[in-house]
Write a protein that binds this DNA or RNA. Structure first.
Lengths: 337, 337
DNA sequence: TTGCTTTCCGCCCACGATTGCAATACCATT
DNA sequence: AATGGTATTGCAATCGTGGGCGGAAAGCAA
């Protein structure tokens, strides 16, 4: 049904290889002939068959994207930004994105991931989600390009792109100190086993030591993925003898709970307590008062990851020259501080 | 580098075609031989090369997903749910998802869409986004399977899957009437040129006529995509002589504005005014009071769309037997009503 | 005329898998 | 021993593109 290169050659009155040369530019083709060929291509709506092309060039022009399908509905809007960034970079470079969401039932996830490589349906992989770990050996051993995105890197082993969570928390503290706060509390996004959580904790700790001169364990509460995480913690923090005048929440949802509880307890936000969230989602925009939030450069992360992967595929970056890209977060100021 | 079918044949001590038969089940292969073959496959981590396979079978086992990359950040979490639904259905059926976001600069969008078809890099297409219109002719003429998802259908021409926005608004009214309300206002999600907006408007109108006996133009305000859409409208609606006791907002974001403004004006929610949102996003969960919202079955829409498309690809549904799937919305009850 | 370059063609192989065909090997039943 | 059925094989063609090679044709300059 669809036109083949032969049809184009016939239409343009040239040989098949001349068409191929004209398109791929690996030999001299006279301008006039080129023009005839491209007119024929246009007329027949010809595009080289991907399968055939892939078979001989050993390139699919696909980038595989494997995402661990976790349940936390909130990260969704963030995730989509990453995907859009990826889509932009790949689209601009004539790549397509081969997407698969997989539940974090580790075996299926790993299988699917390896299948993309084994079936050779993509030239490289981008991996998102913490549960993916086991199957890296085969990829590395066979020098198949892949990039970890927005998840804990494995230093010296895998290329990765991530947001600088540590710096983000650090900036949050610095910003609050600039506003005159010295008793600044932290509610972590979740338990410290999760890397992003630990990073934010560390950034907070570092900044407190640097700007306030002292890190007080009492001012740290551990958040969770529970619906109302932040609610009880707020009360606990505000009832300390020397209560904090500012609270950094590890996620926007938590921050909205913090604001809510603080107000219930009679504290005005931001006058009595300032609040900062994390991730700069709709939640922080819509809360009243709107909540200052640390913005993660999700779209840019996707963009950089795709660019990096494409360089790896093209061999512009050597396999053993492990790249670790960490992108800075920015403070997005709103009413809550 | 990667193993080929020849390697497997050699390893198992059989002929190439026996391996192929064993895998694709198109001839008799003895159990014992089958076992040897699958052991060899396992040992070599063999998977048939997609390009080679696609070339001869004329199937890629990919489904193309073309999404119009609009800017409205809020629809994101919803969009991702659709994608997850798609991913689930395709993954379960051994398909992959070929994703491309494109800005609604119509020409690029259309080009990319047609390229997927012309390059034959997918067996079918799923299209999301209102700006995609022009290039259907080529697809239809060549009987290439595609499904419109979550956007205005073209009756009798294209297969489509959508949420029943009309029924959703209808249910909202019905629910409020059940709670004793009779003066029920509507703020549309945006202008009525947008189909979903019009559908919700019609559903509201229908239900008002049916359950209240009278449709009052005064009770309808036109919303927009502005940040604070809903704010001014609320004031207008509440200052009517015979003010509404309930407001249906066309989107959750708008609903949150409605609640906010109503409270500022001294009306208690839900006691003085009940509020219902649309889309059941995080916003409605996090608002205080939490907002009752009409939930669109996004994930299921993705699932159904993928299933439909796969049936079309397999020829289980004829080309001219146009399917229009409309999935019902449900009321998700919260504090605001 | 000769020599040289540019442009083009035809031919052929390769890529990896599927599949039809004809042939053979094996086994069990009669 | 003959028959029939099942299991397996080799061979070859096919899919659409890419690309190497040698050669032919055409144009141009000396």
């Amino acid at each position: 049904m669809a036109a083949t290169i032969r049809d184009v050659a016939r239409e343009a009155g040239v040989a098949v290889c001349t068409v191929s040369f004209a398109m791929n530019g690996s030999a001299h083709v006279a301008e006039a002939t080129k023009k005839r060929i491209f007119e024929a291509i246009e007329k027949l709506n010809y595009r080289p068959n991907q399968s055939a092309r892939g078979l001989v060039t050993k390139k699919t022009n696909n980038i595989g994207l494997v995402v661990e399908d976790t349940v936390d509905g909130l990260e969704n809007s963030i995730l989509l930004d990453v995907i859009k960034g990826l889509g932009q970079a790949t689209g601009d470079n004539n790549y397509d994105l081969l997407l698969s969401f997989q539940k974090p039932s580790t075996s299926k996830l790993a299988d699917h991931l390896l299948d993309v490589y084994r079936k050779q349906s993509a030239d490289g992989l981008i991996l998102m989600g913490a549960a993916i770990n086991q199957p890296f050996d085969e990829l590395i051993k066979n020098r198949f390009p892949f990039v970890l995105l927005g998840r804990p890197a494995i230093p010296g082993l895998c290329h990765s792109v991530n947001a600088d969570n540590e710096q983000g928390a650090y900036e949050a503290v610095k910003y609050l100190v600039g506003k005159g706060h010295r008793r600044i509390a932290l509610i972590t996004p979740c338990t410290l086993e999760v890397d992003a959580s630990l990073d934010r904790y560390n950034g907070y700790r570092l900044a407190m030591e640097e700007f306030v001169g002292r890190f007080d364990e009492q001012l740290v509460a551990i958040g969770s993925f529970e619906q109302d995480s932040g609610y009880a913690e707020t009360e606990k923090l505000l009832s300390l003898k020397d209560r904090p005048t500012a609270i950094i929440a590890g996620r926007d949802v938590i921050a909205s709970r913090v604001v809510e509880r603080a107000q219930e307890l009679g504290y005005a936000v931001p006058d009595d307590v300032a609040v900062i969230g994390f991730d700069n989602t709709v939640v922080s925009q819509l809360a009243r008062p709107s909540i200052t939030s640390i913005e993660l450069p999700m779209r840019q992360m996707g963009l950089e990851a795709a660019k990096l992967l494409m360089k790896l595929i093209d061999g512009e970056i050597g396999f053993d020259d492990i790249q670790t890209i960490v992108l800075p977060c920015t403070v997005c100021e709103r009413e809550s501080t």
